[in-house]
Amino acid sequence: MLEIKNLHVQLEEEDKQILKGVDLKIGAGEVHAIMGPNGSGKSTLSYVLSGKDGYEVTDGSATLEDVDLLDMDPEERAAAGLFLAFQYPVEIPGVGNMTFLRTAVNAQRKSRGEEEMSAGDFLKEVRARAKELKIDADMLKRPVNVGFSGGEKKRNEILQMAMLAPKMCVLDETDSGLDVDAMKLVSEGVNALRSEGRSFLVITHYQRLLDHIKPDVVHIMANGRIIKTGGPELALEVENNGYADILAEVS
């Protein structure tokens, strides 16, 4: 599904290397987690994959189902099936949540040469999905993320994911700012979307989220590289001993 090879990335504004040769291969239907200390490059990886400005790829590649992601505009990557759940979902005053969702769904369909969703079908679909995530009608009517609590914002991200039905979902610290109940709700939302044709990359600091969203593979990232890869037990090791042991072991 997603294949990243020797990815080197630096900031455009300053001569600072953030990713120093990331290799990662995620198969269809797999859930991978990336853990790592602050500043290791986890969020940068998610931004570079989704096409945010400000980063320069100096070497390496990233492909989604063998299609080069790095050459595409962000909207093209989305239409190709990539989805980034933001660590800090953006508030957009003046744009209704429903309008936003419908515009996004239909823009992707149009770009793939599919027929746009009718207003009726869309409404039915969004209501059903919102209900599962305990998102009420008021939240759908309000401007995108404006006045939403931390938990509401993250649930709204998962709602977008559900509506857009991407192939490859990148979750950037989706657990940050969530209480236990909200984390459970969000995780259930994610788990409901797990399927053979859909892969996940879950970026997190804490093992806690991985209790709910059980990964197949866990990677440890430090200083711009993936330094260790293992099974779910690797996350437990981090939880118990911190990163120090692993960092020492690698160096």
Binding site: E75, A78, L84, V90, G94, V95, T99, T103, A107, S111
Partner: peptide, 20 residues
């Protein structure tokens, strides 16, 4: 960027934000 990351083309996203 948020709108574009959801698949809304740049021009359409700009129009949406301008109308907002």
């Amino acid at each position: 960027f948020y709108l574009r990351s959801r698949g809304v083309p740049e021009q359409q996203a700009t129009t949406l934000l301008t109308l907002a």
